[in-house]
Simulated assay, not measured.
Amino acid sequence: MKYRAVALCIVRREDQYLLVEKYDEVLDVTYYRPVGGTIEYGEDSKSTVIREVREEISAEISEPILVSVIENIYPYGTSIGHDINFIYEAGFIDESFYTRKQIIGTEGEESFNAIWIDLATINKDDKRKLVPEGLMTILTEENDSKLSEIKHYRTR
């Protein structure tokens, strides 16, 4: 079993979200998830999301606001994965990040693409999936009070 606590950062540009795009050749599925990563022992989730965005895409973010917590239990190879995901929303301090088509990031030795994408594109077929499970519902709920508090990030 794989168990971890994770902090992820939602960043919006109008109706698009900045999401890491990864392809799973075995399942033939493209996965999308917000930038972020594992909470280190002794570190709080808010500090993690700030650190992970800085480390992975070399960006500074505004004060992150906790939107939700998602418990995600999922198949992981021949075992089970179990994540607790702290979902934050923030904006970029350097507004030039909003004009980039994609952002090349690094996670350890591996590089990845973070792209601006709307949720409708992800929902087009079964070959694309937003993770963690449940995030799509959070992002598409119009009446979520915490999301409406930070709506101004959408218009950058």
Rank of each mutant, 00 (worst) to 15 (best):
K2E: 13
K2T: 09
Y3M: 11
R4T: 13
R4C: 13
A5S: 12
A7S: 08
A7Q: 00
L8T: 07
C9N: 12
I10N: 02
V11E: 03
D15Q: 13
Y17H: 09
L19S: 07
E21W: 10
D24N: 15
V35Q: 00
G36W: 01
T38A: 11
Y41C: 08
S45H: 13
S45L: 08
K46V: 02
K46Y: 02
I50Q: 01
E55W: 01
E55G: 00
E55K: 06
I57W: 04
E60A: 11
L66H: 08
V69H: 03
N72P: 08
N72I: 08
Y76I: 05
S79E: 15
D83K: 04
I84R: 13
I87N: 00
I87K: 01
A90L: 04
D94L: 02
S96Y: 14
S96I: 10
S96V: 08
F97T: 03
I103W: 01
T106H: 14
G108F: 06
F112W: 12
A114V: 09
A120Y: 10
T121L: 10
I122D: 06
V131Y: 04
L135M: 07
M136F: 15
L139Q: 07
T140E: 15
E141T: 14
K146H: 10
I150R: 12
I150Q: 11
K151Y: 12
K151F: 11
